[in-house]
Amino acid sequence: MIPTIDQEQEKLWASVETLSTINTEQAEAVLKTTVERSLSQLGFTTPAISSLSLKIADPQSVLDLHQIERKIKHQLKNKDRELAYELLIDYLSKLSEMTDKDPSVIHKKLIASLMANSAKNSLRASLVNRPIRHQKTENSFYSPSEAAEKIGLSDQTIRRMCEKGKFAGAYKTNGGHWRIPKANFITTDQQDKRAKAFFDRIDVKNHKAGNVDEFDL
């Protein structure tokens, strides 16, 4: 049986793939959320993606990107991180081709962003016990449950990630509750709401049409 998180990610990809043949603009909006969740679940973070405007010139490009993600997951499960990183380069290369900019320039920026963020994570881990001052503006933070819903992980996983310093600027309140800066995430609340509206409509259509095995590729 496919784990719940993987099932949800497969549904996201299926939604993008379906929309890419019906309404490209909607598909592009959902694609960005799908890519964010994809990289987060794989354990890779490239903040530069937040500034990209992804374009779907050919539905096949979405299928290719999806297949690369599956291969990365397979190699990570086999504990072959070296091959997983090689596939990640292919993943970022494919993303670079799905923009209206020079693919070679965008690819370099994504790789640099990945490397820089990895270095920052290492530094944060070494400073995890050093007190940090936070400007606590309620609207600029997520609770663990809100972050979990946003990227498709469990509350417990999000809290463990906080403990390990995976989120820049995350801190505990006096009551012992984690608060995570929204700046750690690529998509905005409004983008998430629009994506959810797309998924809800697709679920309704699928329900009316009957059960379809979307994953028998």
Rank of each mutant, 00 (worst) to 15 (best):
T46L: 10
T187D: 07
T33Q: 09
Q60P: 00
K166G: 03
F141I: 08
T157F: 08
H66E: 05
A125K: 14
K120Q: 14
L52E: 00
T99D: 02
A14D: 12
E8R: 07
G175C: 03
Q7W: 08
L19W: 00
Q75V: 01
T173H: 09
L39Y: 07
G176Q: 12
M1Q: 11
S118W: 09
G175V: 02
N23E: 12
S154R: 09
E82N: 08
D155A: 04
E146F: 01
N121L: 15
K79T: 05
E149M: 10
K77E: 09
A84L: 03
L12G: 07
R130I: 15
I5S: 01
Q191G: 06
A148P: 03
L42T: 03
T4C: 01
N78I: 01
V16S: 10
I158D: 04
K108G: 00
Q26K: 08
F198K: 00
L87M: 08
E28G: 04
Q191N: 06
F44K: 06
H177N: 15
G175Q: 14
E214R: 14
A125S: 13
L123G: 03
L95S: 01
T34A: 13
A183E: 15
G165Y: 10
S154H: 10
D64L: 12
Q60A: 13
Q156R: 15
S15I: 07
W178C: 05
D213F: 08
S15K: 01
D213A: 12
K208S: 09
N117K: 14
P3M: 09
K150N: 04
E25A: 13
Y142E: 04
K182T: 12
S61E: 14
K208M: 14
M161C: 06
A119C: 03
A27K: 02
A168W: 05
L54M: 10
V204Q: 04
R133Y: 09
V62Y: 05
P181G: 12
I68S: 00
N23T: 00
F44E: 04
R159V: 11
K73N: 13
P47V: 11
Y85D: 12
A48W: 00
R81C: 01
